[in-house]
Amino acid sequence: MTRNAEKSDAEWRAELTPEQYHVCREKGTEPAFTGQYHDLKSPGLYRCSCCGDPLFSSEEKFDSGSGWPSFWEPVDSGVVETEEDRSHGMHRTEVHCKSCGAHLGHVFPDGPRPTGLRYCINSVSLAFEPSDH
């Protein structure tokens, strides 16, 4: 898989905070209800905190009660990729940024209409860009 934002491990470590590095590059998870965006209601665009690509819109954000920002779809079907995750004794679908491979979170089939999906995303994987609308 070719990435638009390929960098060495040393480059990622230099650019990201320790928490961003752990979540985005080592597939970690921030504790529930601790991320800066889990309860944000402002209009805007959520970008990848590693490469800056647009990932999710506040228009598709909803309160899932899970403790992480949740979206029912990305801004475009081609901005994220998924893969099977069988870590921690669970069977889940991991979501990552298509451009740089950053781990974002997981997607579950228990979201609202129209997609029925819940993209459960770590705040630290996102950078919020407010809009005027």
Rank of each mutant, 00 (worst) to 15 (best):
E11A: 14
N4Y: 11
A14R: 09
P54D: 10
G52C: 03
A10L: 02
E19Q: 14
A10S: 13
L55M: 06
T17K: 06
G28W: 05
P18T: 04
E19F: 08
H38K: 09
T34I: 13
D63W: 10
S49W: 03
D9H: 09
H38D: 10
G65M: 11
E59G: 10
K7S: 09
Y21D: 03
P31S: 11
Y46C: 01
G67F: 13
K41D: 11
T29K: 00
N4R: 14
A5W: 13
A32Y: 08
H22N: 13
G28D: 01
G52P: 03
G35W: 02
T17D: 04
D39S: 15
C50W: 03
L45C: 10
K7F: 04
E11I: 02
E11W: 03
S57V: 01
E60R: 15
K41N: 09
E6L: 14
P43N: 09
A32I: 11
S58Y: 05
P43S: 08
E59W: 01
G28V: 02
K7E: 14
C48V: 07
G35H: 00
H22W: 14
P18D: 05
C51E: 07
A5M: 11
D63E: 15
P54C: 02
E30F: 05
Q36D: 15
C51H: 06
Y46W: 02
G52F: 02
T29Y: 00
P54E: 12
C51S: 09
L16P: 00
K41Y: 10
S8K: 08
C51W: 02
G67H: 09
E60K: 13
K41A: 15
L55E: 01
L16N: 04
P54N: 08
S58A: 07
T17V: 05
H38C: 12
Y21P: 01
E19V: 15
F56G: 00
F33N: 07
S57H: 04
E30A: 06
S57Q: 04
F33Q: 09
G67R: 10
Y21G: 05
S8G: 13
L55F: 01
E15C: 06
K27R: 14
E59M: 06
E59V: 00
A5T: 13
F62Y: 15
G35Y: 02
S58M: 01
S58D: 05
P54V: 00
E6C: 10
S8V: 03
A10V: 04
T17R: 02
E59T: 12
P31G: 06
K61L: 06
D39W: 12
T29P: 04
S49G: 11
A10H: 06
S64G: 05
K41L: 14
T34K: 10
Q36N: 13
R47V: 06
Y21M: 07
C48D: 11
S66V: 09
G35R: 00
T17P: 06
K7A: 12
Q20I: 05
S49F: 04
F62H: 08
C51G: 08
E11H: 03
T34A: 12
E19R: 11
L40W: 11
S58G: 01
V23L: 02
E60G: 11
